[in-house]
Amino acid sequence: MENKIKFILNGEEVEVLCSPVKRLLDVLRDDFNLSGAKEGCGKGECGACSVLIDGKLINSCLYPAQMAEGKEVLTIEGLKKSRIFEILSESFIDAGAVQCGFCTPGMIMASYALLRKNPNPTEEDIREGLSGNLCRCTGYNMIIEAVKMAAKRGEGLW
């Protein structure tokens, strides 16, 4: 039996019918054609499906869509509309932290969540903030440098 849920998606109120077992990742991709959050591991271990719910970073592959009722969901597509996205993406490019791009949306969402909480993170803070996100191509040193660069470039915006 499908239920109707309403939530704020990237700043707009939306409504969708979905079964109680449908994951938020599937609703975002199938019902709203938002492909930034990706299915990597399907177990909440890689971070490719990262989105923010009410400002908190979550793995959408583990999150039942019905739990989004009344909440605010921010995906990479929503973040892309902001100056903050420009700062983060330019920093990732300038630091050489993007190769295949599969993990990049999740890394950017994790970086944004971290910098909102801690706009001046230490390297240890960055490592901890990105700890649920895996990258198989770039290596983490360049990603850490990208977050440091973004923190400096976005000073006062976070």
Rank of each mutant, 00 (worst) to 15 (best):
E13T: 05
E72G: 04
V147M: 04
G106S: 10
A68P: 01
K56L: 15
N3R: 10
M109P: 08
I5F: 03
L52Q: 00
R83L: 12
I84G: 02
S19Y: 14
F32G: 01
C46P: 11
V98E: 00
C137G: 05
T104V: 12
A146W: 00
M109D: 09
E12R: 13
V73G: 05
E69L: 10
E86W: 03
I108M: 07
R127C: 05
R29D: 06
P105I: 03
G156E: 02
K81Q: 08
P20Q: 07
I58L: 12
L17Q: 06
V51M: 01
E155L: 00
K4W: 10
L157I: 11
L25P: 11
I144E: 04
S35Q: 12
F32P: 07
D30A: 15
E77L: 07
S82I: 06
A146T: 09
P121C: 01
L25T: 08
G44I: 03
G139Y: 04
L134Q: 02
N133Q: 01
E2H: 15
S19A: 12
V27G: 00
T104D: 07
N33T: 01
S131W: 14
N141Q: 14
M149F: 05
L34F: 09
I93E: 03
D54E: 07
A97L: 00
D31M: 01
C137T: 11
G78F: 03
N141F: 08
G106L: 11
L34H: 06
G70L: 09
I144C: 11
E45K: 05
M109H: 00
P64R: 12
G36N: 07
K56D: 13
C100I: 05
L24H: 13
K56G: 03
V51G: 00
V147Q: 09
C137N: 03
R127E: 12
D54V: 04
N33M: 00
M142A: 14
K117I: 15
Q66W: 05
N10C: 08
M142Q: 08
N10F: 11
M67G: 13
G132R: 02
L114A: 02
